[in-house]
Amino acid sequence: MILDLHTHSIKSDDGRARVETYCGWIRKRELQIEGFVLTEHRQFDDESDYRPLEHEFGLRILKGSEVETDYGHVLVFGVNDRMRAAFDFADIDLPLGLVLEEAKRCGGVAVPCHPGRPRVGMCAHFAERGAVDGVRVIETRNGGSRNGEDAAALALAEKFGYRGIGGSDAHLVSQIGRCATRFEGAIRNEDDLVRAIRSGKFEAIRWT
């Protein structure tokens, strides 16, 4: 199953895409992704119910979040009440170690994203302050990456033995599906997604 693991909707302050329009675009453009994960900035959207859209368009629509740490931005999957109580999603300077540890303890998984990006990526912070224990997976394919950023992420993954996921980091409808992650089996819900990421059996994909 192929999922875009990094997307933003109008729920994010800088997102300009409606989820329904994402779905229509995916089908109209015959994109290869079979679903996507909404990773809104500094929050978890527990209000929206996208099940009707899942049924209408035959797509999997899951929810995660993109939080901000002292080592850059981090995607968290498998968000639940325990995790939301464990750290403040709105905090823009969360300790990376805390997010990694608490996400795992609460049954989820944390994945540093666009690590090659200046300021908001992990690579530069590693270079300046050293590595942080607990990282297993990073985003090695990001649809918003500029020249050299994905290469830096891949080099980091190779150096430390990290697995790599892909996500478009879409903020506009037309940006979805530029990168994604191919899993071996079906992903039915957030728990399946966490298990699949923890298994390490996936591959990051870039189409454009």
Binding site: R16, T21, G24, W25, G144, R146, N147, H171, L172, V173, S174, Q175
Partner: peptide, 30 residues
């Protein structure tokens, strides 16, 4: 690029971008 159409309202939604010489997206809009 046109991302959706609404026949009832006769409107279309358009994604907009400005890129620099390196192909980096600097401004986005709708």
């Amino acid at each position: 690029v046109v991302t959706s159409t609404d026949a009832g309202a006769q409107t279309v939604d358009v994604d907009l971008t400005i890129e620099n010489e390196a192909g980096e997206t600097r401004v986005i809009g709708t």
